[in-house]
Design a protein around this nucleic acid. Structure first.
Lengths: 344, 344
DNA sequence: CTGAAAGCGCTTACAG
DNA sequence: CTGAAAGCGCTTACAG
């Protein structure tokens, strides 16, 4: 069947050198071992010529390095995560790394299981949007020397590289916008979870509310509740708080159900109900009326995440002191029609 | 650092048996080699007890099997593909397989490159939504004995397992619906590509048009054109064919630009312009007016794909005759407001 | 019914 | 400046 793959031994034989020499060139260690320049070039040229690629499993077995990065996202079918995953993957491939990813669905148990599977695969590093409660597993990974980069959120008590948007200020500014548009009773609809990014968004909401001497109105919903049940619950909430004139949705996902609930109740956006959503979506621009949303800088996030990871992966391993980086990016409030009352 | 992993040798030593015995039990070959039932149970219990997991790289190196499946989608950030990928991944994990996926962006060159990378990783099988022009690479893979399962579309001239929706009938029925709604001049907006699924959708469109003795109006757009340019082009097309009263978009992706173009031109859906889209989207239901769409059965597709793959992977390898399966699934036309003229 | 041994394709410490 | 050799953790043909 499969035609026999070329091995280092074949190359060594053809070139009349030892396997060591070939391997050294392959691993860019030619200089530090004082291999002759000509020899290096000769081997290198030949390798390029025949398009030799090392067997990853042999490398993995021998060196423990696998050039594979594990990525844990909340939900790979969510537009925010899939867009980030895609860009990270692309960049990683260019650098000769593979990405394997899985969806935690914000479940602690599932995340732990996946991390366990990943560990058995001896990945080189981990990119994680952590659900609450996996502190111990992450610490263990880090103690074993694997780089971990968080994105979208962090875990309290864990000190590592992370890339996030400025959730607090993003939420605060979105609220300011709603207030300036004349909305008085603005509710915040969020997940019933302790995730850091959600709490920060809530803090931004509360800050704006308190500066305005208004009363806060917070509705918490379950993460992956049954869709019709979730919508029903939101309808009920809105109906029982008839004075609410605007809603700030803490995520795209909640907004989807929320918009449907608002529609079902026959409320008109933006005059009966103002709407702002955290996380933008291609479709929001096309809505009637178009939906105001906080757009996270996807490309920038992806770029920072993969750069941090590659840096950790390529920098000589064990430092006494590691200077972890916390990258905080600005988001962009996309003001559209859903948050500006129309003349009437 | 990392605490030393348990190996087969450790287990053999602890249990006072040979590595062979342990390996045999591990691989479920205990019976065919007549290992004693008690021995098998003893080893098996111990393995479970300590939660031993074999080193994948050693297995991969030794056996050539890696329990990893490569998946090539068009765009992992597209809702259709990400939903399918996620379900396949989940099922694969349960069965002890990993999935690595990448986006081809419908580019022949990129798909070839990715397949090349995959090959070097010695994957066990391939799940592919093929762009045109990779026939040779796929044939090569198959000649080497790797199972290949196509989904969403096939490649002419390649005979292998595939899972698809009945594109022809789905398109035909959607057209019938538009015609019954009273639309007279229905345009078909599709990609300028030779992909089988697109041609089938077009065939369904043409069939309905010809049965109705109408004239066909087809607009082809580039796959990943610059967004504003793409929208401009669609606007121009609509403006220069003012008699068109409905558009059937061949994909979700084209519809996004198309809806924006229609909005920019100030045309009202559904009265000025009826709309139907191939591929549903969470957001279409929420649109004002809601958008009629052909929903593909995501779960069913994913289920069939992974089942076919696992079957090929676990069935004893080389057959003289392989009975490839072509699974054709029904889609669901979700009739909403965009395709039914309102009274006025 | 069970074990010793070769070998998958690499990397690297060591010897020259 | 370069090569022979050990060993990573498995699987499997072979011998008993």
């Amino acid at each position: 069947m499969a035609k026999k793959k070329t091995t280092i031994a074949d190359i060594a034989k053809t070139l009349g050198v030892s396997k060591t020499t070939v391997s050294l060139v392959l691993n860019g260690k030619a200089r530090q071992t004082q291999l002759s320049k000509e020899m290096e070039k000769r081997v290198h040229d030949y390798i390029r010529e025949i398009g030799y690629v090392p067997n990853q499993y042999a490398q993995g077995l021998r060196s423990g390095k696998t050039r594979t990065i594990g990525m844990l996202v909340e939900d790979i079918s969510d537009s925010f995560f899939s867009a980030i995953a895609r860009q990270i993957e692309e960049r990683a491939y260019q650098m000769g790394y593979k990405i394997v990813y899985s969806s935690t669905e914000n479940e602690t148990r599932k995340a732990k299981e996946l991390l366990e599977v990943y560990k058995n695969n001896k990945l080189d590093g981990y990119i994680i949007a952590p659900p609450a409660g996996i502190e111990d597993e992450v610490k263990e990974l880090m103690a074993e020397g694997y780089p971990v980069v968080f994105f979208d959120r962090t875990l309290p008590g864990i000190h590592t590289d992370s890339v996030m948007v400025d959730n607090y200020n993003s939420a605060y500014e979105a609220m300011k916008h709603l207030i300036n548009s004349g909305y008085k009773h603005i509710a915040f609809m969020t997940l019933s979870s302790d995730q850091v990014q959600m709490l920060e968004r809530e803090r931004g909401y509360l800050q704006a509310i308190s500066e305005n001497n208004a009363a806060y109105i917070i509705k918490r919903v379950k993460y992956h509740d049954d869709k019709s049940h979730a919508i029903g619950e939101i309808e009920e909430f809105i109906a029982s708080h008839a004075y609410i004139d605007a809603i700030f949705f803490a995520t795209n996902y909640i907004a989807e159900n929320g918009l449907e609930a608002i529609g079902n109740l026959g409320l008109q956006i933006p005059n009966d109900m103002g709407v702002v959503v955290f996380d933008d979506n291609n479709m929001f621009r096309l809505f009637t009326p178009s939906i105001t949303a906080i757009a996270q800088p996807i490309s920038e996030i992806a770029e920072h995440v993969i750069n941090l990871m590659l840096e950790r992966l390529t920098t000589v391993a064990v430092h006494e002191v590691v200077d972890f980086q916390t990258v905080v990016l600005k988001s962009n409030l996309q003001i559209r029609k859903s948050s500006i009352k129309s003349e009437s």
